[in-house]
């Protein structure tokens, strides 16, 4: 319990730090401090509303606390171009990003864990000599480039998948849920997920492989052999179970990290997610929207850091009982 509290405070501190950095970053942007919230796209009423809401006529330190207060209430201002509350816009695209990221990660981690364990088993064989450089190469290729090649090959050349977006134009759905489970959506999802999975599988694979190699030398695995357990039981129940610990943590961290990385993949596939929203907002100098999108991504990242900390405690009794090693 103390550990949970400690990790919570730590991550809450990180969140506060990120919002603070963001506050000052947006105020140091070229233009007047007002530029962060108000531009000519907003009509006079909207401009006055912003002025009051963010206390832009008050000193910097007061603005900072007003800003924090607004954040707590989910008040992120109005988008310059869409003239709608930033939060509404973000909540609309957030599911798309989460679905893309989670599906990609799940595919990547299932493949990576299995392949990593298998490669550890094949230690010293030609398979290892071929596979490890290929995995390294997949980690080295730019994420969006993998997407471009897949897009050219599987979509434009072979016509297997649609080339972008989340739904075909002209489709109509009675509810958001219906949209998300429609075959059309899944078809659009496939290629970005494949890209993400290809890019992300390297980490769990290499992690699992090296953990397995390490664990296989551990005394308790040797003892399991001495006890005469079956090969399967030794590898799965003892070696893999222990080797999996850091991989699970990496998974939770991966949600946050790849949410950030998604800005490029979402752009390649015109996927209406939060990353692409950020890019568009920055390109349009839509400060409130850009700030909101960035905060949202940071929030997911930090939340997942916290989840990862907790997961590690759940899975590793040594941490759970507040004693390392």
């Amino acid at each position: 319990m103390r550990l949970v509290l400690e990790r919570f405070l730590h991550n809450a501190g990180a969140l506060l730090a990120v919002t603070t950095i963001l506050f000052f970053m947006f105020r140091l942007m070229p233009g007047t401090p007002l530029a962060a919230y108000i531009n000519d796209n907003l009509n006079a009423d909207q401009q006055r509303l912003m002025l009051e809401m963010f206390g832009l006529d008050k000193p910097m330190w007061m603005q900072y606390f007003i800003y924090l207060g607004n954040l707590v209430h989910g008040e992120l201002g109005l988008s310059f171009f869409q003239r709608r509350p930033v939060l509404d816009i973000l909540l609309e695209v957030l599911p798309n990003s989460l679905i893309l990221t989670l599906t990609g990660l799940v595919v990547a981690y299932i493949f990576g864990v299995l392949a990593g364990a298998w490669l550890a088993w094949k230690r010293g064989s030609w398979v290892e000599g071929v596979a490890v450089p290929i995995v390294l190469a997949s980690r080295a290729a730019p994420e969006f480039w993998i997407g471009m090649v897949l897009l050219a090959l599987l979509s434009f050349n072979l016509g297997w998948f649609p080339s972008g977006g989340a739904n075909s134009p002209g489709m109509f759905y009675t509810s958001e849920w219906q949209r998300l489970v429609s075959l059309d959506y899944l078809q659009h999802l496939a290629l970005p997920v494949l890209t993400l999975a290809l890019y992300l599988q390297g980490l769990p694979l290499l992690l699992m492989r090296s953990n397995m190699l390490e664990v296989m030398h551990e005394e308790f695995v040797v003892m399991a052999r001495m006890k005469g357990f079956s090969q399967w039981r030794i590898v799965i129940r003892h070696a893999a179970r222990n080797a999996l610990l850091p991989v699970v943590t990496a998974f939770a961290l991966g949600i946050g990290i790849s949410m950030g990385g998604n800005v490029v993949v979402e752009t390649v596939f015109s996927w209406p997610g939060i990353g692409r929203m950020l890019v568009t907002a920055v390109a349009n100098l839509d400060y409130p929207l850009a700030q909101g999108a960035f905060l949202m991504i940071a929030l997911v990242l930090i939340t997942m850091n916290f989840v990862a900390d907790l997961l590690y405690g759940v899975l590793d009794p040594r941490v759970r009982h507040g004693r390392a090693g």
Binding site: V18, I21, V279
Partner: peptide, 17 residues
């Protein structure tokens, strides 16, 4: 703190602005 900033979005915002 620096490690809890999302990498690519941070670079996008910084270079974009």
């Amino acid at each position: 703190m620096a490690l809890s900033l999302p990498f690519l979005p941070f670079v996008v915002v910084l270079t974009g602005f």
